[in-house]
């Protein structure tokens, strides 16, 4: 879907990005992460030509972005930013309908779509639609921001630290909601964050950038298990095995069978949750499904694989 070939971005003498190449498949969510100043936001903004390339090229559906008109390019790409950037002079409905109205879609249809999207984002359309952004909390505003980005149903979404301006509890809610949403909307997403936990939680693949170069790009599990170099290892932190476990469902590590005296853990919990319970003193845990029937068991040895 998106292909980066030897991408270079320089400001004067200073090269922010030096020779970046990788590819993003359709429907994939790739997280760009790295220390501040590593060029992750710059890379994101190169994709929708908010800034222009210094070298290399970016292909979207095999077409060089430089041959496309930047405005129509952006119309086809959803864009969510950390500062949200809701238009303060427009109502919530008008905000969500911005791109459809730019595309001159039918008024009735786009209002219908806006209702649907607000509903999907967990905001009651009748209650919030006619309000102005200043009347919403930060978390609610970002929900509207996401609804606005997907309103015209773009194939690609660029998200620049969308959840970092809200408090930790709201962030968690937004992430969970977004994970649920992701399975429904089927979009190719490039997601920038500085939060390793968020990257591990959301990413299909994670691309770690430092000093303008890709340090490693791989699935969260692989990345956490086998960091390519010292930088990646220290960036992911000493607790990277724990983080890895947080991405593994407990069903992946359980053995078949059941332990007669063990307590139970629901099947959608992660291996990290299981570890937590086991370290708290349990010898083993029985994994149960939605019908409360035991489908397997897990103990500390199982987690060491």
């Amino acid at each position: 879907m998106i292909k980066l070939e030897h991408v270079v971005k320089a400001y004067g003498e200073q090269e922010v990005l030096k020779d970046i190449s990788f590819e993003i498949a359709k429907g994939e969510l790739v997280v760009l992460i790295g220390p501040s100043g590593c060029g992750k936001s710059t890379l994101l903004r190169l994709i929708n030509r908010m800034i222009e390339l210094s070298g290399g090229r970016i292909l979207i559906k095999d077409r060089d972005t430089r041959t496309l008109d930047p405005v129509s390019l952006r119309l086809g790409i959803g864009y969510v930013i950390q500062s949200i950037g809701l238009f303060s002079h427009m109502t919530i409905f008008e905000n969500v309908e911005v791109v459809p109205s730019l595309l001159q879609q039918n008024k009735k249809l786009r209002r219908e779509r806006a209702r649907e999207l607000l509903d999907m984002m967990g905001l009651e359309p009748a209650q919030y639609g006619q309000r102005y952004p200043k009347e919403l909390s930060g978390g609610q505003q970002q929900r509207v921001g996401i609804a606005r980005a997907i309103a015209a149903d773009p194939e690609i979404m660029l998200m620049d630290e969308p959840f970092s301006a809200v408090d930790p509890i709201t962030r968690e809610q937004l992430q969970d909601h977004f994970l649920g949403l992701k399975t429904q909307i089927d979009k190719t997403i490039v997601f920038v964050t500085h939060d390793v936990d968020e990257a591990v939680k959301l990413g299909d693949r994670i691309c770690i950038l430092n000093q303008g170069l890709v340090q490693q790009i791989d699935s969260p599990k692989a990345l956490l298990h086998k960091p390519a170099n010292d930088f990646v290892a220290s960036f992911l932190g000493e607790d990277r095995e724990l983080k890895r476990l947080s991405r593994i469902p407990v069903t992946d590590v359980m053995r078949s069978g059941a332990h007669p005296e063990a307590r139970t853990i629901e099947k959608h919990k992660s291996a990290k949750d299981a570890l937590n319970r086991l370290l708290a003193g349990e010898n083993s845990l029985n994994v149960i499904d939605d019908q409360n029937s035991i489908i397997g068991t897990v103990n500390l040895q199982d987690l060491q694989g």
Partner: peptide, 26 residues
Amino acid sequence: PEDQSNAALGCGMNAWQILWRLEFPQ
């Protein structure tokens, strides 16, 4: 506000649309 002009650009507004839909009302 910079976040709004950024968002307008990212939405795919052209210069004329940015003027009429964002800058003038703001």
